[in-house]
Design a protein around this nucleic acid. Structure first.
Lengths: 162, 162
DNA sequence: ATTCTTGCAAAGCCTTTGCAACTGC
DNA sequence: GCAGTTGCAAAGGCTTTGCAAGAAT
């Protein structure tokens, strides 16, 4: 369930370097950080820290848990990744080069379905205006069961009756 | 920022007893649970487990952390409380006798502002229909700075310039 | 050279859980 | 009296952090 990408002028890598350079005290761009940025933006996934570590190790990169956590925080801060609070752990998704959207989250299979909604964005602006609230961001997650899992359940229920 | 309550026929306590009695194996209604239900529904707050423990102890009730966590889970299950994922911990709010609503969360002062939006509910239904998704619940939280904190910041900024 | 990053293991934080004593029904 | 609840402390799961060694500018 992937939305069309947004055209951006810089590569994620370049954007991250820019962010690092612009810090009060310039920060360094290391090989491991470069590998992470490239790996993360070479696919479009919702992932958590542990998955990323496993996937990168499987792909032959050497990464340490601590550095992954530290770099993920920087990537969020740099505006490359967006954080999703989902149950006990954090999930991450592309922010840079990807449109604003909301989520349907299937509690059976874990699938994330993305959707865009001008109506929600309009409501958001209106509510903020009414309350003189300055929004930094928002989360809209609908929890439930996706079409596939629903079908599976139906089938199972039918079988149970036999 | 409190919305008008919804009229309900049972007290939260009665509703909880009913839930406990209707379990596959009936569960018991203890003094500590009764104190918790009464305490929680005697005020309208967004609270977390730790706050509840502190507040109840201060009010002279004897409660243990483990039991509070266990009872909060039951109350959510019973439909009395709704859970809000906000950063690293869980927050709770009234569900029973309280209308469906969304939240503005001030990151400066922690205040929760509640609002209702028919537009959002309509969008939710429409999106679910399109994706044949069966919704169990949703979370819509707008993060940012509330009017008060905004004013405070403005003032501070003005002072900084002097 | 200096300052930042890394990696390990340890600590932190919130929540759950094993178990023995206890209690509601 | 049986089955469920309590309370303690310990364990669990995820994330952060102190520190010494290493690397970037």
């Amino acid at each position: 369930m992937e939305l069309p990408a947004v055209t951006v002028s810089q590569s994620p890598e370049a954007k991250f370097r820019e962010y690092l350079a612009s810090r009060p005290r310039p920060q360094r761009f290391t090989d491991q950080q470069r590998d992470m940025v490239r790996f993360i933006f070479s696919q479009h996934h919702h992932f958590d820290a542990e998955q990323l570590i496993d996937d990168m190790k499987r792909a032959g990169f050497q990464v340490s848990r601590a550095t992954v956590y530290r770099t993920l925080n920087k990537l969020v801060d740099a505006g490359l990744l967006r954080r999703l609070e989902l149950g006990p752990r954090m999930y991450y998704e592309h922010d840079y080069g990807y449109p604003q959207h909301e989520h349907l989250h299937c509690e059976q299979c874990g699938k994330m379905i993305e959707f865009q909604s001008p109506a929600i964005e309009a409501t958001l602006r209106e509510v903020c205006r009414q309350h003189q609230f300055h929004a930094n961001g928002h989360t809209f997650i609908i929890r439930g069961t996706c079409a596939e899992c629903n079908r599976a359940r139906m089938t199972k229920r039918r079988l149970d009756l036999v």
